[in-house]
Simulated assay, not measured.
Amino acid sequence: MRSWLSEYLVAQHRALDSIPLDGVEKLIDTVRQAWRDDRQIFAIGNGGNAANASHFATDLGKGASDKTGKRFRVLTLADNSAWLTALGNDYCFDDVFLRSLQNYAKAGDVLIASSVSGNSPNLVRAFEWAGQNGLHTVALVGAKRGRLAEIAGQTLVIEDSHYGRVEDAQMTILHMLCYAFMDGGAA
């Protein structure tokens, strides 16, 4: 077991080392501009990445807002189970994020998605709509990149395809973004 644990950590370090710092800086700039312009920031993902989206929205909406004194307008579209199941049941699950964006999003807002495969139909459809409607789109994806990487305005790739390692590295990016405002002086 010790050998497996050590190998896992070595692989996790490689995944973390693949975080594109120039991409993270650009993401911070995108969010900073949205914050200054009082734009909405949306976070989406499925499974573990839905949880990461929720964690990110909490850290940015509470922690970074408290530190900067100006509130971030951030919302995850994966947290309202009644809304999600109504949309999934009455339309289709592939449209759950797209339909929510149609209610809330405006041109100039920011849409951030985390996905290991980059091919989740509900994320892809949301990005297609967002691109057609003037939103800034940022995709955090794994090594397979997928369709999200092709259509996103900005893509940050973690060079691994292991779900746990990629999701951990993606959450590290989201933490870096939040802490740039909380203790890094990004404001």
Rank of each mutant, 00 (worst) to 15 (best):
R2F: 13
S3R: 11
W4K: 13
W4A: 14
L5Y: 02
L5A: 07
S6Y: 06
Y8N: 04
Y8L: 00
Y8P: 02
V10S: 12
V10E: 15
A11N: 15
A11S: 15
H13G: 12
H13F: 12
H13K: 15
R14W: 11
A15W: 05
A15R: 03
A15I: 07
L16K: 09
L16C: 11
S18N: 11
P20E: 15
P20M: 13
L21T: 12
D22N: 14
G23Y: 09
G23M: 05
V24N: 01
E25Q: 14
L27A: 10
I28H: 06
D29C: 14
D29V: 13
Q33W: 12
Q33V: 14
R39A: 08
Q40C: 13
I44P: 04
I44C: 13
I44Y: 05
G47I: 04
A50K: 11
A51K: 09
A51Q: 11
N52C: 10
N52W: 08
A53S: 15
A53C: 10
A53F: 08
S54H: 11
F56M: 08
F56L: 10
A57G: 04
T58F: 04
T58Y: 07
D59M: 04
L60G: 01
G61T: 04
G63K: 00
A64F: 02
A64W: 00
S65D: 06
K67C: 12
G69A: 06
K70G: 09
R71A: 14
R73E: 14
V74N: 02
L75E: 06
L75A: 07
L77T: 10
L77H: 08
L77E: 10
L77R: 07
A78W: 06
A78R: 04
D79Q: 09
N80T: 08
L87A: 12
N89R: 11
N89G: 12
D90E: 12
D90L: 08
F93K: 00
F93Q: 03
D94M: 06
V96T: 13
V96H: 06
F97S: 07
L98V: 13
L98D: 09
S100D: 13
L101A: 08
L101G: 05
N103K: 15
K106G: 14
K106T: 15
A107F: 09
D109K: 10
D109V: 11
I112R: 01
A113C: 10
S114R: 11
V116Q: 01
S117F: 00
G118D: 03
N119G: 08
S120G: 01
P121V: 01
P121L: 00
V124D: 00
F127I: 05
E128I: 13
E128C: 06
L135F: 11
L135R: 05
L135M: 10
H136E: 12
V138S: 01
A139W: 06
V141Q: 01
V141Y: 02
R145T: 12
G146E: 00
L148V: 05
A149F: 05
A149K: 10
E150M: 01
I151W: 05
I151Q: 03
A152Y: 03
A152Q: 03
G153T: 01
Q154L: 06
L156P: 02
D160G: 03
G164F: 00
V166L: 03
E167M: 01
E167W: 00
E167N: 03
D168K: 00
D168A: 06
A169P: 04
Q170K: 07
Q170L: 03
T172M: 09
I173G: 02
H175T: 09
M176P: 00
L177I: 08
C178R: 01
A180T: 02
F181E: 03
M182T: 15
